[in-house]
Amino acid sequence: MRASQGMPKRSPLGAWLDRKQDLFISSILLVVALSAISGLVVITAFIFKEGLPIMLQVGVGKFVSSSDWYPAEGHFGIFPMIMGSLAVTAGALVIGGVLGLGCAVVLTQFCPRWAVSILKPSIELLAGIPSVVYGFIGVVILVPMIRVHLGGPGLSVLASSIVLGIMMLPTVTSISVDALQAVPKAYRDGSIALGATHWQTTRMVILKASRSGLVAAMILGMGRAVGETMAVIMVAGNTLDVPDSILAPVRTLTSNIALEMGYAAGDHRKALFATGVVLFVIIMILNTIALTVSRRRSRRKSGA
């Protein structure tokens, strides 16, 4: 409380504020922090309150395993959407994972510093492009390309995977870069000293040592892919069928919600919230895995 010494006398309010300064500020911060968390709590409670009753009414097993989605007739089964989300996410992971990991390896191991200072921000810039722009480019360029050269309707698992793969690049790349940079320099020096080449060192030492960080990067990228909506609606085709090839159209959980939310009423609306519950659970599982993996990694690091 250095303020109270040698200062001229001032209003009672000011003096009171002075005395209470710490308490005042910390309580404001507490309120701010709590409001952020309460947002999470309220959203969770709301989704479950709206979605669970219809899920229980239909039967959880039937809801997630039935392929009949005819809301007007009271049939709610989201199995094709779950498969769709999984297929699209897996595809995105293959594309975004390979590209992102490749980027990260090049950026940390094989790239002069000046190039890194250009490349890394430009990859991170991808995160700032709105998803509807990705979707639009997908519809206008990617979809006709797939339709003409590979067949099928163009709107497909493949198109969504490519779009999502590129969208998750910034997440995967920047977290992988962090993981690769966290490998102690001694590992690398030791390996080089033993006569391994640069590539052998990268492949057998650096990648292995940072494996858990890389897994966390993949899973966080996956979370982004599962949750993305707008771009997917535009390029996925949104059929109600389980996709039988990567050229077949799909509907994901998120696009099911976004497509029909504007119109839905009654049980249909509740079923869309229930779709949200399923999505919520899937994302929770992914995040829990990511957290556990990265925590294990930091524990190991602090032990080393």
């Binding site: 392929s67 094709p80 519809v139 979809v143 006709p144 339709r147 309707p153 163009g154 709107l155 609606i233 535009m234 085709g237 949104n238 059929t239 109600l240 069928d241 159209p249 509907r251 497509l259």
Partner: peptide, 19 residues
């Protein structure tokens, strides 16, 4: 079930235009 689902007249037109 195999029908592609689009969310506006414009999106339907865009698809028909190219396919």
């Amino acid at each position: 079930r195999k029908a592609l689902t689009q969310e506006s007249n414009g999106a339907v037109k865009e698809l028909v235009r190219g396919d």
